[in-house]
């Protein structure tokens, strides 16, 4: 059974000209330890699909199953619980909690999900090269460092599914490559299923599978 299953997902947005379809029957599976690259042009619906996969947004039709659990069958609190304990999210703009230190940010989701393991967190920080930065605040870090914290935060909760939306989009090539490699290694080591949105064909080429979204459909 796949960790993440998207079945015939449809979604459209309202505009002045009427409803504009964004996703038109997308189906996609991600298995444990599998890394799937989701590529496509701007506006092709990649991020919308990722948000639907995370339960942040509801599809008009179709099903999202995480670990076999149908998201649509859950109330808001249930979906929030699933996000807390099962799903990890990494965003292009990092979206760290600015009022917490790097150490607190790293541990935050794991503590929310009651799965915090101090030893694992320390080890994760070391592997991410953040051990000396734990007392700093996000605004005191470079973009690359912030993205490493964001990845660490998502992985510290040992999610079954990791969803990453252009996690290297704001980084220079060298830093982006380093962050990407690290994320891949960590996800594979934990057996986490990773769905990664990227524009980079080079990075997509390093994934287990690559899917192309075009005009709301998988090509």
């Amino acid at each position: 059974m796949p960790l993440l299953a998207l079945e015939d997902i449809r979604k459209s947005f309202a505009s002045a000209e009427g409803a504009v379809p964004v996703l038109q029957g997308v189906s996609l599976d991600v298995a444990a330890g599998q890394v799937v690259a989701l590529t496509g042009e701007s506006g092709s619906g990649k991020s919308t699909l990722l948000h639907i996969a995370a339960g942040l947004e509801a599809p008009e039709s179709g099903r999202v199953l995480i670990g076999g659990q149908d998201m649509a069958a859950l109330p808001d609190a249930g979906r929030a619980k699933l996000r807390r304990g099962t799903v990890g999210l990494v965003f292009q703009q990092f979206n760290l909690v600015p009022s917490l230190t790097v150490g607190a940010n790293l541990a935050f989701q794991a503590r929310l999900a009651n799965v915090h393991d101090a030893g694992f967190c320390t080890d994760l920080a070391a592997r991410l090269g953040l051990s000396d930065l734990l007392a700093r605040y996000p605004e005191q870090l470079s973009g690359g460092q912030q993205q490493r914290v964001a990845i660490g935060r998502a992985l510290a909760a040992r999610p079954k599914v990791l969803l990453a939306d252009e996690p290297t989009g704001n980084l220079d090539e060298a830093t982006g490559d380093a962050v990407f490699t690290l994320m891949l290694d960590l996800a594979r080591a934990q057996g986490t299923g990773l769905l990664l949105v990227t524009h980079s064909a080079r990075l997509a080429g390093q994934c287990d599978r690559r899917v192309l979204l075009r005009a709301g459909r998988l090509a």
């Binding site: 942040l56 808001d76 929030a80 909690v97 989701q109």
Partner: peptide
Amino acid sequence: VQLAPLWAMGLTVRH
């Protein structure tokens, strides 16, 4: 902008 990450990490809007 400050609340969105917490929502994404599993706090409900009501909370």
